[in-house]
Write a protein that binds this DNA or RNA. Structure first.
Lengths: 231, 231
DNA sequence: TAGTGGTCTAGACCACCGG
DNA sequence: CGGTGGTCTAGACCACTAT
């Protein structure tokens, strides 16, 4: 009996043809049905392989239009942002945490913008420092929407970081992410034990549940921080 | 006759139960078979939904172990890096390009590191500036492995950027990506029309075909550049 | 070793959209 | 409107791994 073809076999064969330019950018691939027949498998197996290629941004598929190699390939990369404690610990370091400030305050303009608000609002602001092997690692400036998350008022943020509490207790729908570079001002330089003006890598994240905003956080990393990923 | 259940229906139902904490972090979900029966669909439909949840990092699945809500949720984000010309044009700006330098040179240490080389090697180095509406946008410092891509020697890089030529003519297998912040030195400040010392967002990318290195590029963005994505 | 998820099949119908 | 991809089903077998 014939060998059993897996969807990964199909994936590899088609991918190889793209890599060696048998199918070049913009080219149209045969219909799933024909590929299935050629390779001797069911159409759904081809479907499975093609979905993978499609999700990776290698081909584009359209009903009736067929499958095409992307005219302008993209590098599609995925990365995970986890709880900072985990990030530190999985690097084999000792994690610690300091609460710097906790207050109720009117949301400033940048926070209003992140949440799409038109007027300032009382929110819970939390500033904290994450440390790796006792060295400053990430300073986080967080605003929590107390309308959406009233329970956070009762959490002891001295021992449990807002980062972790929220992740465990407040699942979110979707998030907006933003990465950029920023010069250390006096405040950040002091907290992160960095030189004034040094370039710092910043990650901003705003999370929502449905249309209700949960929290927005600006994570300022210490000098030398890199975000690394592989496709 | 009963309503036809789609995998997205299943996805939504399960996701909702996770969002409202019916299933909390660490909890075990019923077997696919049971969910299929409960919702009145085939097991493969549940499979399809569960794979999605799994790929998004919301649940973890293991044979025999079953399906669990992740104990420590992660934010899994995806972003595309496309040809710089496209990035500029899809922002509604006018793209232009300047070749700054083109030379054969021994790979410096950082390039050796990116490629995993132990000894320096002659490679093609290309420096170029991408502009958006005539303003400096990204400076790219690229090293091309001429062993893997000999044809690039014959390409006129005055009119076609190496970025674009490589993407169209040299498909790659996988890529390493690296993001960080860096202070503008005199050279970058001059090219990008930026102030000395200002924080710049940098993207490094190294691509491979199998085990053969293709190119490594350091893209230094102009001040204010942000990488934005949404989950 | 038994239980669970992963995959393949063959066939059917549907949804979208290009010619 | 017809061709193509997207999905569902029911059943079977396989692969991994927790117990």
């Amino acid at each position: 009996m014939a060998v059993r073809i897996t969807w990964q076999d199909v994936y590899d064969k088609i991918h190889k043809r793209i890599l060696d330019s048998s199918y070049a950018p913009g080219d149209k691939l045969p219909r799933d049905e024909d590929i299935a027949q050629e390779l001797g498998c069911a159409r759904s197996t081809v479907q499975r392989a093609m979905r993978e290629l499609s999700e990776e941004g290698i081909v584009e598929r359209r009903r009736k239009g067929g499958t095409h190699v992307r005219s302008y390939p993209v590098t599609r990369a995925t990365f995970d942002i986890s709880v900072t404690r985990h990030e530190v610990e999985s690097a084999g370091k000792v994690y610690s945490y300091q609460l710097i400030n906790r207050e109720i305050a009117k949301s400033p303009r940048n926070v209003m913008a992140a949440f799409g608000l038109t007027a300032p609002k009382d929110m819970l602001r939390i500033e904290a420092l994450h440390l790796s092997d006792r060295q400053p690692y990430i300073y986080e400036d967080r605003w929590v929407c107390t309308d959406t998350v009233p329970e956070i008022a009762n959490v002891d943020l001295q021992c449990e970081s807002a980062n972790e509490w929220l992740v465990l207790n407040r699942p979110y729908d979707h998030a907006d992410l933003r990465f950029y570079a920023q010069n250390a001002d006096a405040y950040h330089a002091d907290l992160l034990d960095a030189q004034l003006g040094v370039a710092l890598f910043v990650m901003e994240r705003t999370t929502w549940i449905g249309t209700a905003p949960i929290t927005t956080v600006k994570a300022v990393t210490s000098p030398g921080y890199q975000l690394i990923t592989r496709t």
